[in-house]
């Protein structure tokens, strides 16, 4: 069974007005359990819209979303979040600043935690501590520190833990390292790879860095104008260079890749 099936997703924003914008134009995708798919595409290609559709931030015009055999097309966003973890570009989005690290983790864990009276309890905290230790940031000794006092990279790393803490069936990463400085971005990306691999998570990651799109994961898709125009995996992908990827894009999309924010290196 597929971990995730997207069947012909369509969405037009502001339909019937002069501003109508076709954001998703028939997206279909099948992801096997454990797939780590990197998603490329220029601005406005529909990458984040696709994620938001999976997360249930809006209703689709057409199409079905099936997660691990369960049709979630009409489920409310917070219900889907039970099985989907997500992480955004802005490190501030994923955490509550005036609450402590352990409180943040406890809240995220409430999806799967046994229903204890107090949200933070000793048993869960041991689990949180072991997770934080994996990050190698020393956060395991600062669990009573307020989230707002951490740096962007630390907050993003903590958000990553919060996204995977309840063992989601799908992890969505929307350029989650783009707002970090290069060394921190690399560290968070490495952490992501380790964590995704160790838990065999099914994962989709939007990135603007073509190199890391080819390096991370086992499959790369490229989006353009609300469609998936390229889908490479296996040996073809293993031998692919960034130049070849750009060339393939030109072939299939019928035009040059808009290299606005994309990093070729």
């Amino acid at each position: 069974m597929n971990a995730l099936s997207l069947v012909n997703l369509k969405k037009t924003f502001e339909k019937g007005t002069p501003n109508a914008k076709v954001a998703l134009n028939g997206i279909s995708l099948e992801a096997a359990p454990g797939d780590f798919i990197t998603v490329l595409g220029s601005n406005g290609a529909g990458k984040s819209t696709l994620f938001n559709a999976i997360l249930g931030k809006f209703r689709l015009d057409r199409g079905r979303i099936v997660l691990d055999g369960e049709d979630i097309t009409y489920e409310k966003d917070y219900r889907r979040a039970l099985n989907i973890g997500c992480l955004y570009q802005n490190p501030l989005r994923g955490t509550a600043p005036s609450m402590t690290i352990e409180e943040n983790l406890a809240l995220a864990y409430s999806r799967k935690a046994s229903k204890s009276f107090f949200a933070v309890n000793r048993k869960d905290c041991e689990y949180f501590r072991s997770l934080l230790r994996e990050l190698n940031l020393g956060l395991e000794d600062r669990m009573k520190t307020k989230m707002g006092l951490l740096s962007g990279g630390q907050r993003q790393a903590a958000s990553l833990l919060m996204a995977i803490i309840a063992e989601p069936k799908l992890l969505l990463l929307d350029e989650h390292t783009a707002a970090l400085d290069p060394p921190t971005a690399r560290k968070v990306l490495d952490l992501t790879k380790t964590i995704v691999a160790s838990r065999r998570l099914t994962c989709m990651m939007i990135t603007h860095n073509m190199q890391s799109a080819l390096e991370a994961g086992n499959r790369t898709i490229m989006m353009d104008d609300g469609r998936i125009v390229l889908d490479v995996s296996g040996e073809e992908r293993a031998n692919m260079t960034v130049q070849q990827l750009v060339a393939r894009f030109r072939e299939t999309a019928g035009r040059d890749l808009a290299v606005d924010r994309m990093l070729l290196g």
Binding site: Y78, R80, A81, C86, R93, G94, A96, E103
Partner: peptide, 13 residues
Amino acid sequence: ATGDNEEMVRSSS
């Protein structure tokens, strides 16, 4: 948490 970051609360199901 809702007062602090509502989106994060939704993301936590």
